[in-house]
Design a binder for these strands. Structure first.
Lengths: 328, 328
DNA sequence: TTGAAAGCGATACCAG
DNA sequence: CTGGTATCGCTTTCAA
């Protein structure tokens, strides 16, 4: 691998001049410029980002910490982050935390060691403040972590209200809400929205908890629906549990949407391919990722954006698990 | 940020000693050890990987270049790579090439600049040899690129034969094969397998081409099945096109598997959630990724594995788009 | 068992 | 416009 001084030697100039040429900083004469260009060609020279990082204490690497890329919500998010990073000349390191605080900490430290430029984080740790030590620019994605940290989320409350009202509008009388894990703020907020919408309509309802996993949700819902046949409308806090509910209903020979209607939350691809296709509150996943990346890059590049938080509206996508019947 | 010399100063030893301590290389006296440990605690010292990289010319970063993380095949693959990397102390940079040679080249160069330790690559460029310049350890994943490069693939031929024979066994008489893009070796190999199985059985069949995208496949298949109602068995070279076929058949009011049977290829999650659930030749995606990562790390750590190539057997997963009827 | 000092490959300040 | 050189933080001989 050729180095900058090889280039300098061959071009018969100093390394300083080559460096200036490389970074378009300061003057470089036409002759110098030319011979440097040739030398670079000839030596097949590629500057070392590592050396540059060491001397500038900066890098163009962004760390992305998410629970699990296998979770269908995250590929699109990761893609959006990567696209945006690419556009601005950054590169992304992918870390799967498995919702595990130890792993999250491990990665945080590891990324710090690498002088990453900044971190985008869907954190499991919503209460502790172990990122206080992290001096880097951070953006919290999907889950807020600290009021001082820039955050990008979906308007969960609004989305849940949208879903719930629509279910009611479609004639559902006996509602069930499938919440996510209790420690997830987003799930809690969705439940708030659910309750608010019910309250406005004077209806009462059940709430049960299930992880965002369609097989587990299917089991839980199978038992629950069997025991509570009067339920005719379900709002699930995730598409995964909505699909679980759909499968459970299938097994119980309930017709969808005639006997029971279902609305999910997230807007992942599978919802569209399942039969009947899932009515859902779709988060704008790509925009979420893109916005987070842009916010981070702004911070990295110096613009202080004092506790800027961005909340993105979701959108109700009506498909086949609900019936529009204007409640007569 | 504290540096190694801060630690040395505080611990009243030399940086060399601290370095030896950090890397467990060479002797460090008990007293030195102790004071170094304290100094590190006190200063909250974290070694800089960048500086280390610069002096050792090594790093613990692995580059992973794939077409698109949104493609349902890749999240699990990426996860396997990341898990394995994590286990061995490496970190992975994710790059989406979009099947675009320019982007692929860009990333290859970018990764080189960063002194990545090695690269795992699902390449679009199967003919050109632009990786000849890349001096780094490389493993080709899913798609072979060069006989000199270690490769991990699924046994596509065998998988296709498995699928085709099974379709025949289930009584299908009039087969259609949906191939992938012509320039993909894996798709070509699957077609070989399809033909081989047919040949053994003296049956003839149609082959059409479709991208690995279920919406496009649905359109193509809708027209094709409409024009060729005699087709009663489909082998798709990807689950995506299989699902497209399934949807098309649905729209044509064909009953599955009574009127038409379908077998896919890949074994992605959605196949299981679609209705009826998809019979498919499942690649062992996780193992694929894990093996590639292990092969790469072995190379990185010095073991020369002259053109080692690993071919992993897929497995037929029988679900609901086929009917087992032992050919009457 | 320890430390001094020479790199690693760039950047950037300061003279010229 | 250009070049010398200190510096970034760590590793690695080589002597002591």
């Amino acid at each position: 691998m050729a180095t900058i001084s090889d280039v300098a030697k061959l071009a018969k100039v100093s390394v300083a001049t080559v460096s200036r040429f490389l970074n378009d900083s300061g003057y470089v004469g036409t002759k110098s410029r030319e011979s440097i260009e040739n030398a670079i060609k000839e030596l097949n020279y590629v500057p070392s980002e590592v050396a540059r990082s060491l001397s500038t204490k900066q890098s163009d690497i962004i760390g992305l910490i998410i629970p699990d890329i296998k979770n269908p919500f995250f590929p699109e998010l990761a893609r959006a982050v990567e696209d945006t990073a690419f556009e601005y000349g950054y590169t992304v390191i992918l870390c799967n935390s498995d919702e595990n605080a130890m792993k999250e900490k491990h990665y945080l430290e590891k990324l710090t060691k690498k002088y990453v430029a900044g971190i985008i984080l869907t954190s499991i740790i919503e209460q502790e403040n172990h990122w206080q030590n992290v001096k880097l620019p951070i953006v919290a994605l999907d889950r807020p972590i600290d009021s001082k940290v820039a955050t990008v989320t979906t308007n969960n409350q609004k989305g849940a209200e949208l879903a719930t009202s629509y279910l009611l509008e479609c004639g559902a009388k006996n509602l069930l809400c499938i919440s996510g894990p209790k420690n997830m703020t987003s799930s809690q907020t969705r439940i708030e929205g659910f309750k608010a919408a019910l309250h406005r309509n004077g209806v009462d309802a059940h709430i049960i908890e299930s992880p965002y996993d369609f097989e587990i949700a299917e089991k839980i819902l199978y038992d629950y629906l069997k025991a509570n046949p009067s339920i005719d409308g379900i709002f699930a806090c995730s598409d995964a549990s909505a699909i679980g509910a759909l499968k459970a209903a299938h097994r119980l020979k309930l017709r969808i949407p005639e006997d029971i209607q279902i609305v999910g939350f997230d807007g992942i691809q599978v919802g569209n391919v399942v039969t009947p296709s899932l009515t859902t509150v779709a988060q704008n996943i790509y925009l979420l990722g893109q916005t987070a990346a842009e916010l981070l890059i702004k911070q990295i590049e110096g613009q202080k954006l004092a506790q800027e938080s961005i909340c993105i509206d979701p959108e109700l996508i009506i498909r086949e698990t609900t019936r529009k019947e204007r409640s007569e």
